[in-house]
Amino acid sequence: MSDQQTITIDGREVPFTEGQTIMDAALAAEVYVPHLCHNPEFVPHGSCRLCVVKVNGRFQSACTAPAAAGQVIDNSSDEIMDMRRTLLQMLFVEGNHVCPACEKSGRCQLQALAYYTGMLSPHFTHFFPLRRIDASHPDVVLDFNRCILCELCVRASRDVDKKNVFGITGRGINAKLIVNAASGKLGDTGFSVEDKAFHVCPVGAILPKHKGFEVPIGERLYDQQPISVVGDVAAHDEENAHA
């Protein structure tokens, strides 16, 4: 193993192979790097920036930065954690996140990351944007208030389901999720709960109808242990889907 290439994350040597990103190498070595828009099953998107790390003194997103021999990576200093918390606070005030009224609460990755980084308040001024709920589909409700524009549903529907149900339109603060139907309604697409895109949303934007608040508080995914231990909600959703 003498020619094994490695990077160093928080003082720990982590092996990598050519072509892997820092995130790939970290995941393979079970080193937790916080993330929202990343899911190892899809092409990296690099939009949420939660996986920000300091590589040889420069900030980079771990999901898009290629691993290179000898990199010294800071994944947990106060500086990095403060930055991640600030990103989360901006995500919270940009949408309408009323956790006590959200069926995803307790198994939401945005919320779990906020706990993980010790976010006690949203800090910024709330936008309280006017967004709608699309309940036109018989089995699924789409709540735009909670969408964080991670594009996981877009990628899953395009790359796996080959249906192109979702898209993002607009730029900057005007960016928003749209549904590929003349009416703009989810009920007028071929979307189904069998779709991969149904199982990838890290937050409470794409939710099943007819079953909410089924798991009691205290027993939900992130109630007892942090996301760094439990892992992504999508991985657990897949398990549940086949249970």
Partner: peptide
Amino acid sequence: AMGACATNGGIPAMRNQ
């Protein structure tokens, strides 16, 4: 600030829509 409403408006702020 104690609780969700004091921190982010909470349920009453749903009227902001």
